[in-house]
Design a protein around this nucleic acid. Sequence first.
DNA 1: CTGAAAGCGCTTACAG
DNA 2: CTGAAAGCGCTTACAG
Lengths: 346, 346
Amino acid sequence: MNNGQKDVQFMALTLEELAKQAGVSRSTVSRAINNHPNVDPETRARVLAIAEKLNYQPNLAARGLAAGRTRVLGLVIPTGVAALFSDPYFPILIQGISSACNAHDHSVMLWLAEPEYERRTIHQILQSGLIDGVIVSSMLGNDPLIKALTEHKKPFVLVGRHPTDSRVSYVDVDNRDAVREAVAYMLRLGYQRIATITGPQDMTVGVDRLDGYRAALRGRGILPDPMLIANGDFTEQGGYAAMQRLLPLEPDGVFVASDTMALGAMRALREVGKRIPDDLGLIGFDDLPLAARLDPPLTTVRQPVTRLGATAVEMLIDLIQEPDPRPRRVVLPTELVLRGSCRTAF
Amino acid sequence: MNNGQKDVQFMALTLEELAKQAGVSRSTVSRAINNHPNVDPETRARVLAIAEKLNYQPNLAARGLAAGRTRVLGLVIPTGVAALFSDPYFPILIQGISSACNAHDHSVMLWLAEPEYERRTIHQILQSGLIDGVIVSSMLGNDPLIKALTEHKKPFVLVGRHPTDSRVSYVDVDNRDAVREAVAYMLRLGYQRIATITGPQDMTVGVDRLDGYRAALRGRGILPDPMLIANGDFTEQGGYAAMQRLLPLEPDGVFVASDTMALGAMRALREVGKRIPDDLGLIGFDDLPLAARLDPPLTTVRQPVTRLGATAVEMLIDLIQEPDPRPRRVVLPTELVLRGSCRTAF
DNA sequence: CTGAAAGCGCTTACAG
DNA sequence: CTGAAAGCGCTTACAG
């Protein structure tokens, strides 16, 4: 029996208790709190005031059980993505998602999933009764998770479009077009022999950016040379290694599919004494905070990572609320940020 | 009425159903699944077999409500930590925690918390009924969260020791001693004028590493020169700026309190044409994957980040199970990794 | 607009 | 060792 004032303040306050204090039934309190229309405005105001005063927090487990809704969103990131630990893209995305969740009074549950999700893991995610929907980042090709999600009828949205299934909702940027423009810009500048360091080709985003590169060349009547396409994996090392492979082929410019890989490419160039942009022009993708601080500052395609995350959250919450959800697709704009890694005069 | 085989497979299977299939009561199934001692081994085996076959997943919301235990752990990282977006330390830690949670059949809920948690947020974390305990990373001085956690009697463990309260459980490395050894090593090598770039001094880890630096100097009878102490914030930019401030003072060596800051310091040195280790010796802290790839490879203090995360999870699960938990403190070993950023002959 | 009651899927004394 | 029953804290038809 510890009823000291101090403790009472932090006691788990139930709806029951709150109802008693407000002199109404549990039902009414529940409706007031959940913004149900059929509540007398005065009653609602009184209930909310008391709830505020007593610092009432609904028990989400109970809510989840009763209503089938917890206001918790799952976030799945496959650890198979090598860049998870080295590319600031992920922390920024996670931060965008987390912050949007807070703003919408939701929480986020994190799944750093093994590349081949075991059956058990998927079911855990979906049947735990703990999450209302899920955001999936960094799709690897044909992910079994997507199939399971669909079969379970769990609302979900992808960050990055799905390669084949047009019924899945996603938020993305137009990677292909953004890259096409970036490479077209290099061509206009006068670069003649432009190579590329790609993202992983088992990721949609990797394929799309490579497509954009090819499209730009073709747009100028240039046949893309397979030799000038070096595969990377979105890591700094990957960019470094790819640049080393490219060096003997003497490109005069390189489009690198991520800033983090561009960092590696610059390291490789520095080692052999090549100067940017004099000996070789470089364009990256992302516009991470570090891009502006590189030497020279990196010309790059800016994508709104935080907004991608926030948009995913908002779409997902919509999907959860919408009784008959149809797939939604949102494409956010990119911007080519001109800095010092491309030579403007030839 | 959709009872096609396919769908049934993914139907949310309840205890009730499972009990029926196994020909026992709900109680028995529950006990079997939760490893309760008083169950006939044969019965248990049968129940588990059926559960496995039907791919039964307990509804965690229901479990949380009934038992007060959800097997969900909260992970709180203050976004006030500037380095969150640039230091791979965090992704690695998160990965360690997530992976250990999976191994122990737990989930992790992520809170990227604003530096001054609003009262409401704290209560949300604690009264949601959704998490059994919390892991707090990167303590900033005297965090109100800790007080709330204690008052709510929620089990929690810190990654990084608490500066003052000896009753809180934590897992940490001995930062002070690790740094003392690193700097002592530089002194033994013959370095005469060793500066340091510190972590934020409102974080315990920042203070501890600076203490270690001072202790090493004093151990050699050298009075630490305040001018040679440049404050950093665990970001690359911070390290860069701090190095620039240090340059005019002409140190011959610098202990940098994180690899990420060392990266920035190296950038500053490169810009002014200083060579490592010939003009200046450098030691970092963390041994991030990139440390070995720097030019020159960075001599640094290795800390087991993944293990820190895993240990935190295990400690927390213990604390949750233990009825009368006493504070636990675990200190993991570090290792000075000798590479090329210190000159060995003078 | 409001309340009494059933129910969400579990766990856990309690009785046997 | 097992089962019937109460209960965790909510929501939501249903009746008024």
